[in-house]
């Protein structure tokens, strides 16, 4: 029973992590110089949802995470939803072809996904009437953000892995939980 409760608490815990992450991102990295190395914590979570969650659960979590982002920005409403959902769906599709054996390959995937997400961001922004100079300004931030995301991902993914273990959301942990339940029934 406790294990099932822990499993249910996984999604709220992830959303709480998203909110704490976005608070740190918008306050700590608001200082000059640090601003150029601002990570996108929510994008890292979207990557995690795309790779480690079922389709419906991951998609719903992605929409909620995008909503969290939109309460902390002056960007046109819906921009983050489009950007994160496109990233989620693309990564979900690509995950069928990709082999991610270790954390290094996950970091590499994060690096490319960050660039991809930014390109989508720029595209949608341009369609909404953003000027060329502003798009050029966005380009300046593409690679620093992607690098920081990849580096931060190394720790964040490990913590998320531990959280999944602790809340029985991990596939192996799920099997253990299933075995236990079977034993209880038996």
């Amino acid at each position: 029973m406790i294990r099932l409760l822990l499993r249910t608490s996984n999604a709220p815990a992830l959303l709480l992590i998203a909110m704490i992450g976005v608070a740190i991102q918008s306050s700590f990295f608001s200082f000059w110089i640090l601003n150029y190395f601002q990570p996108d914590v929510l994008l890292l979570l979207v990557i995690w949802f795309a790779l480690r969650r079922p389709f419906v659960e991951g998609g719903v979590l992605t929409l909620i995470v995008a909503e969290i982002a939109e309460t902390h920005t002056a960007a046109p409403s819906g921009l983050f939803m489009i950007c994160y959902m496109a990233t989620f769906l693309s990564l979900r599709g690509a995950a069928r072809l990709l082999v991610i054996p270790d954390i290094a390959s996950l970091m590499l995937l994060t690096l490319f996904t960050s660039v991809f997400a930014k390109v989508i961001d720029m595209g949608v922004f341009r369609l909404l009437g953003g000027s060329r100079a502003q798009v050029q300004h966005m380009i300046v931030f593409i690679f620093p953000t992607a690098l920081v995301n990849a580096m931060l991902g190394k720790w964040l993914y490990r913590w998320l892995e531990k959280l999944d273990w602790a809340t029985f959301k991990n596939i192996r942990a799920e099997r253990l939980l299933g075995d236990d339940l079977n034993l209880e029934i038996g």
């Binding site: 608070a23 991102q25 918008s26 990295f29 608001s30 601002q38 902390h72 920005t73 002056a74 931030f141």
Partner: peptide
């Protein structure tokens, strides 16, 4: 000022 925009592309403050 307690925070800045979560995106580097937009310039709002809280």
């Amino acid at each position: 000022v307690i925070a800045k925009d979560v995106s580097t592309d937009f310039r709002a403050v809280r």
